[in-house]
Nucleic acid binder design. Structure first.
Length: 497
RNA sequence: GCCCCCAUCGUCUAGAGGCCUAGGACGCCGCCCUUUCAAGGCGGAGAUCACCGGUUCGAAUCCGGUUGGGGGUACCA
């Protein structure tokens, strides 16, 4: 299904992969996939002061991990940079911007501005004091050749400003319909190339989108007010206009634009906490979009098949971590055994390394545990909350060892009797089905409630009130440890009291 | 301040004039299952569709205004 549709994500490596970037990338990817178009990635690294190789790697790896892969763009995970419009890093495309700037300068669509930052700052303050919107005055807009020469002789190189023409600029936004903005509100002629010669975002984005033949510019709503500047630049450069679409923003729980301050914004943190790519993709897609049916657990390809920009919401969506966790649980329950084990392993190993548990389980051990943990995991990392007691020593706490309806003496009696019954049990049939009847019989004989005895044993052998089914736990622990832990619990109870 | 955008349960949303006494999901509450915790099943509370006017036989859906919220206002991206 060949298509001329070409979309892109253009992250800036000035921070780790942000949820908002991932979501915008996903929507572009879905749009391309749905239409059989091309999705490309371009690094906007012209903010040299803040860009780093580490952030770049985090972004590329993160998107790749999520399954948001590009048809053209920088290399990742051992792959080479690929695509007919390489390079895909703006700092390697400097000649293009310089050439484009020369064209604008030659046509007098742009001019050199020699104002210093201090002068600009003073101007801004003056306008603010006069209660005027901040805007460049255009002081250098009509310098004569002599005046320019004089300034250059002073050693000033000058930034390049684009002449903003008067009038109204409008476009038919794919998600919000007709939008029109008077260029008088753009803040005057804006800088497209810094005095040091490096180009600025508004300029590079247009030069590159044109060069890379981007057909649809799909980005966050925070770019709506930038779009007129871009349209003006496309016009000035004589390039065909792409279609624009502005996505609603992801918001903090309080409704403001998502920020590090109020939310966890780094995708890497979600990965580290054990969220699956399936859940993250599923959740991001449903923030601002819905298939229009009552499905809510959908995989990437199902989403791509149904994705339409026409169905995206106009208003921003608050980030709801509880819903994400629910979705994550849904996806964890859907994973195949070997897949789940492979994804769990790094988390148990990390827990061991961090000292959360004393040792990490092997693949076979984890596989055997799957039936006990699978439906109890909201994140992969929560595996140690569920069965961490299997991999670490316990320190019996007399205060929590006694079930609600029991007293210490009864508990000691219960545990002792249970220990006897378990010790008498044939070690070769140490299985859940085999272990339960004798303990039930004990309960009947003593007139206890099954729940109380079981809770006493549970606390003694796991140290937790919430665990997978007790008899499965006894099997997982093994006879020796069960008996030893009960002994330790009884001893602690006696010592306490 | 100025410009732009948005507005359905607490949250994510369905809804594109009559099918809506507004549907689903998360969360919450209850019941069932049950040795605990989950998972699952069932049920419940929860939205006068921000408000006010209009258009229409009929409006959550169209129009206008108000209010509220958000975004932008750099030699950042």
């Amino acid at each position: 299904m060949p298509s001329d549709i070409r979309v892109r994500i253009a992250p800036s490596p000035t921070g780790p992969l942000h949820i908002g970037t991932a979501r915008t990338a996903l929507f572009n990817y879905l749009f391309a996939r749905h239409a059989g178009g091309t999705f490309l990635l371009r690094l906007e690294d012209t903010d040299v002061a803040r860009s780093t190789a580490a952030f770049e790697k985090d972004i590329l790896d993160g998107l790749h991990w999520l399954g948001i892969t590009w048809d053209e763009g920088p290399g990742v995970a051992g792959l080479e940079e690929a695509g007919p419009f390489a390079p895909y890093r703006q700092m390697q495309r400097l000649e293009l911007y310089a050439a484009a700037a020369d064209v604008l300068l030659a046509k007098d669509l742009a001019y050199r501005c020699y104002c210093t930052p201090e002068e600009l700052e003073a101007e801004r303050r003056a306008r603010e004091a006069a209660k005027l919107p901040p805007a460049y005055s255009g002081r250098c807009a009509n310098l004569t050749a002599d005046e320019r020469a004089a300034r250059e002789a002073d050693g000033r190189r000058g930034a390049i400003r684009f002449r903003v023409r008067p009038g109204v600029v409008g476009w038919n936004d794919l998600v919000r319909g007709r939008v029109e903005i008077d260029t008088a509100n753009l803040g005057g002629d804006f800088v497209i190339v810094r005095a040091d010669g490096t180009p600025l975002y508004h300029f590079t984005v247009v030069v590159d989108d044109a060069a890379m033949q981007i057909s649809h510019v799909i980005r966050g709503e925070d770019h709506v007010s930038n779009t007129p500047k871009h349209i003006l630049l496309f016009e000035a450069l004589g390039h065909p206009m792409p279609v624009f679409g502005h996505l609603p923003l992801i918001l903090n729980p309080d409704g403001t634009k998502m920020s590090k301050r109020k939310s966890q914004t780094a995708v890497a943190d979600y990965i580290a906490q054990g969220f699956t790519r399936e859940a993250l993709v599923n959740y991001f897609a449903f923030l601002g979009w819905s298939p229009g049916t009552e499905d809510d657990v959908l995989a990437m390809d199902e989403i791509a098949g149904r994705f339409e920009l026409e169905k995206v919401q106009k208003g921003g969506a608050r980030f709801d971590r509880e819903r994400l966790e629910w979705l994550n649980g849904q996806w964890i329950r859907r994973l195949a055994d070997d897949d789940l084990v492979a994804r769990l392993l790094p988390f148990t190993e990390a827990a061991a390394l961090a000292g959360v548990v004393d040792r990490a389980p092997g693949e076979a051990e984890l596989t055997a545990l799957l039936p006990l943990v699978r439906e109890r995991l909201s994140t992969l990392a929560s595996i140690t909350d569920v069965v961490g007691f299997l991999w670490r020593d316990l320190a019996p706490d007399p205060a929590t060892l006694v079930p609600k309806r029991w007293d210490p003496a009864t508990t000691i009696g219960g545990l002792t009797a249970a220990r006897e019954a378990l010790a008498a049990h044939d070690p070769v049939t140490w299985e859940a089905d085999e272990l339960e009847p004798p303990l039930r019989a004990l309960v009947g004989a003593r007139g206890w409630k099954a729940g109380d005895l079981f809770m006493a044993i549970r606390m003694a052998v796991t140290g937790q009130a919430a665990t997978p089914p007790l008899f499965d736990v006894l099997v997982a622990l093994g006879r020796e440890r069960v008996l030893a832990r009960i002994d330790a619990a009884v001893a602690a109870l006696r010592a306490a009291g």
